[in-house]
């Protein structure tokens, strides 16, 4: 589904991603871990198309299409979803109108007619229950005045509504208390299927007790320095990141 080969990117002259290789297939959950500043969120941003990053090398194919050639909105329309680490507050744009617009633009791209009002309402109710998202928040301005946990839940609600092929969760667990973490993880687990895939970026092993990954990768200094299964996450929890860093130095 997603094929990343030797991806290099940075901001201005600062190189941040220094050759990432990653293959993600349908039905898989990949966790990306790593210390602060290793490039985890940069990878998410580059895949979603954030303009502040400049791609300097490598390639990314998404379902056979060159992802890096697409504008941000087309990546989303092709089925890529980024759950933001810091969801933006947009006063005056209602959550529900925002979702309807997004859904219809995605449908138009796929040459489908706009969703009818009744069906949209039904879908909203269903997904809102699925991810335990407060109905009151659905009609409010987008993320305006939401708590940290509410914002993250809203990301998962949007994820449920838009049904992407590939979802990248960028530190969705950071700053969540255990109840919010449980709600968010349950939502993700309910949405997992053999047709979609997840890349879960996290700083903490705790999340992976709830969303059990098929693969764990450790990102350090702009490269994936170690890959393994969920046991790797436990080892990282126990030993920290220092032992991972050593080989990276000797390689470079």
């Amino acid at each position: 589904m997603l094929s990343i080969k030797n991806l290099q990117a940075g901001i201005d002259d600062k190189q941040i991603l220094k050759g990432i290789n990653l293959e993600v297939n349908a039905g898989e959950v990949h966790a990306i871990m790593g210390p602060n500043g290793s490039g985890k969120s940069s990878l998410a941003s580059v895949l979603a198309g954030r303009e502040t990053y400049e791609v300097t090398g490598g390639e990314v194919y998404f379902d056979g299409k060159n992802l890096l050639d697409m504008p941000v909105e087309d990546r989303a329309r092709e089925g890529l979803f980024l759950a933001f680490q810091y969801p933006v507050e947009i006063p005056g744009v209602s959550n529900i109108n925002f979702l309807r617009t997004a859904l219809n633009e995605i449908r138009a791209y796929r040459q489908q007619p706009p969703i009818d009002a009744k069906e949209f309402l039904r879908l909203t109710k269903e997904k809102q229950q699925l991810v335990e998202f407060d109905a009151k928040l659905v009609n409010r301005s987008l993320n305006e005045g939401f708590s940290g946990g509410e914002k993250k839940r809203n990301e998962i609600f949007q994820l449920a509504m838009l049904e992407p092929k590939l979802a990248i969760l960028d530190e969705t667990d950071s700053g969540l208390d255990i109840d919010a973490l449980r709600v968010v993880s349950n939502g993700v687990n309910k949405l997992r299927s053999d047709k979609n895939a997840f890349i879960v970026i996290t700083h903490y092993q705790r999340l992976l007790e709830y969303i059990v990954p098929d693969f764990v990768h450790v990102l350090y200094n702009g490269r994936i320095v170690k890959s393994g299964t969920k046991e790797l996450a436990l080892e990282l929890e126990e030993r920290g990141y220092d032992w991972i860093k050593e080989p990276a130095y000797s390689n470079s």
């Binding site: 979603a48 198309g49 954030r50 303009e51 504008p71 941000v72 909105e73 990546r75 989303a76 329309r77 979803f81 980024l82 933001f84 969801p87 933006v88 947009i90 006063p91 005056g92 744009v93 925002f98 617009t101 997004a102 859904l103 633009e105 995605i106 791209y109 301005s141 949007q158 838009l162």
Partner: peptide
């Protein structure tokens, strides 16, 4: 960052800008 957020949900550049101007005015 607001524009990027809207576009990352599949909303095109011009709809996204329209949404932001309207939100600004409808306040």
């Amino acid at each position: 960052s607001s524009l990027f957020y809207l576009k990352a949900r599949g909303i095109g550049e011009s709809s996204a800008r329209n949404m932001l101007v309207k939100a600004f005015a409808f306040d």
